[in-house]
Design a protein around this nucleic acid. Structure first.
Length: 528
RNA sequence: GACCCCGUAGCUCAGCCGGAUAGAGCGUCGGAUUCCUAAUCCGAAGGCCGCGCGUUCGAAUCGCGCCGGGGUCACCA
């Protein structure tokens, strides 16, 4: 809708137009302050300019009204237009809110180390990435989801060591000398038990077997992580192993050396990342010849760009923000455009339970497990809460609030509105299809206002995706559900002369709620 | 010290590519049910938009400087 209004305005005004929401809906559906900026250029009174523009717009069929008010031009869409659009949407649910974007995007998210189950912080990035992908795909973007598996390095060894020691101590009753750093938590004990069964007790007699145990444990952890993700409906298209990337390291390193991107100092190899805006150069190869973690990321991003996507999006924990500059620097050294890589940061999550800080269980290794929270509030509520705020701001929420069954729980509130529509159709004994062509001419302003709001979904999704502000979708759904609840309270539907028209309107609202929720990975309730 | 995020109603937060009277939910107080789900709705109270300066017709929004809170500053991943 917005697009069409925009192009009509553009036709009449040879100037970039800003299109916005009017302060009050009674003013119209769209508004533009264009007269103010034109006034400057033309050195004329904005009120007059606004009036002239409004006059031209009045001739457009798509508009019912175009008024100049205090310099603003307010536009109201015609009922015919709204009705036609709604009928089309109702008959083409799968097409509604689709876009014609076609950029290919590689979206990397979660990428948690396979050394333990996912915790609540991971969950935020996971949900965020998943929903970004869902919306993007609806809009036409070709998005693939990728998980970068950090299966190399010290933390994997530590995982194996932890399992090795736990097995010795608790399963085999042998002595175990615990180092300062190791993984703890119930899952390690579980792993230890299973490891003895799977690998045989003899593997726990000699530290030389730890790498083998590590490898085995890492695979189990990846399974566990995937179970955690599947529980909330998140699936990946690709998994990329860090370990496998190091096979390409020599080749990539040679390339870097050839372009002068790295230099040797103090026996180590450094990336000249300061040349591309980093605050200092970074070590990529240690004195003993082992590449650093950054080396893996360099290879990874080198290969990513070789794969030829139009855009790359990474969702990282906010604690990685210092990492952005060096990775982008590496990309620049390969002659690629670092702008094609976009990093979305996912900030910390704090949990409350009944107003008190959520107790971290020792059992879980002093983390709040995603699995536990899903068990407590369900996948839908978990998804929803993460989507009510920008990803790069701290989020605090109380799990008790999300367990309540009233309007303090937004997911409940929205589902209830959706279910009410289905209940109406059931009570009326009619199918939704049977009212699609009913006339809505007799309906009043409020009804058309709600119809318009329901039809905003496509532009809400587009705006949310483009600005990477997914909370716009949850805000919208809450708003639309609220409108419907009020409408439902104010209007008797069944048995009135306008029954079919009101049912049709309800069906349209339900459609937007349903498609909107679907974009969030939530299935709308038809009955409650 | 540097960098990132945040500071808006008692609480949790929207609004922030400058625009019309600053919003929502919770909480508090008051009200609505002979009728399709009261799992809902309506109303009230509650605001130096952290502070200051600047930019301009216009600043919660942009810039600079403070103050306060959180995070990060690895040759760990």
């Amino acid at each position: 809708m917005r697009q069409r209004v925009y192009s009509i305005l553009q036709k009449h005004i040879e100037h970039p137009v800003v299109l916005e929401k009017p302060k009050e809906r009674s003013f119209g559906h769209y508004a533009t302050p264009i007269a103010f900026s034109l006034a400057k250029v033309l050195r004329r009174n904005p009120m007059q300019i606004a009036e002239e523009i409004a006059q031209k717009l009045r001739e457009e069929e798509m508009f019912e009204k175009a008024d100049a008010l205090k310099g603003y031009v307010n536009i109201k869409l015609s009922r015919n237009f709204l009705n036609d659009y709604a009928v089309w949407a109702l008959k083409n649910e799968d097409e509604f809110a689709k876009g014609d974007f076609s950029e290919s995007i590689l979206l990397e998210f979660v990428s948690a180390n396979p050394t333990g189950p996912l915790h609540i912080g991971h969950a935020r990035g996971a949900v965020w990435g998943d929903v970004l992908a869902r919306i993007g795909r609806r809009l036409g973007y070709r998005i693939e989801r990728e998980y970068y598996v950090n299966d190399a390095g010290n933390q994997i060894y530590l995982l194996g060591l932890s399992v090795y020691l736990a097995a010795r101590e608790s399963v085999l009753n042998l002595e175990a000398e615990w180092p300062e750093e190791y993984y703890r938590g119930e899952y390690i004990a579980d792993l230890a038990e299973k490891a003895v069964d799977a690998l045989g007790a003899e593997k726990f007699m000699d530290e030389a077997f730890i790498p083998e145990i590590s490898e085995w444990a890492k695979d189990r952890m990846l399974e566990l992580i995937n179970d955690n993700l599947h529980e909330v409906g998140i699936y990946f298209d690709h998994y990329v192993s860090e370990k496998a990337l190091y096979e390409k390291w020599d080749e990539v390193f040679t390339r870097l050396a050839d372009t002068g991107a790295v230099y040797e100092k103090e026996g180590k190899w450094w990336l000249r990342s300061t040349e591309h805006g980093d605050e200092k150069d970074r070590v990529v190869v240690r004195e003993d010849g082992r590449p650093t973690y950054l080396a893996g990321d360099i290879v990874y991003h080198y290969l990513k760009f070789e794969r030829g996507y139009d855009r790359y999006i990474n969702i990282w924990g906010a604690d990685h923000h210092g990492y952005i500059a060096r990775v982008k620097a590496a990309i620049a050294f390969f002659g690629h455009d670092p702008q094609k890589l976009e990093i979305i940061l996912s900030q910390m999550v704090s949990l409350l339970k009944g107003g008190e800080p959520y107790k971290m269980s020792k059992r879980a290794g002093n983390f709040i497990l995603m699995h536990d929270i899903v068990g407590e509030i369900g996948a839908d509520a978990l998804r929803f809460i993460f989507l009510t705020k920008k990803s790069d701001t701290h989020l605090e929420f109380d799990v008790e609030d999300l367990k309540r069954e009233d309007n303090s729980n937004p997911i409940y509130y929205i589902n209830y509105a959706h279910a009410r529509v289905f209940s109406l159709f059931e009570k009326a004994g009619k199918s939704q299809e049977s009212v699609f062509d009913a006339s809505m001419d007799a309906l009043g302003e409020e009804a058309y206002d709600m119809l318009f709001t329901a039809l905003l979904l496509p532009e809400v999704l587009e705006d949310a995706f483009e600005s990477r502000q997914l909370q716009k979708v949850t805000e919208y759904l809450k708003h639309l559900a609220g409108m419907y609840h009020k409408f439902y309270y104010d209007n008797r539907v069944i048995g009135t002369p306008d029954e079919e028209a009101l049912l049709k309107l309800s069906a349209m609202v339900a459609l937007s709620l349903r498609v909107g929720l679907k974009m969030l990975g939530i299935e709308a309730a038809k009955r409650m």
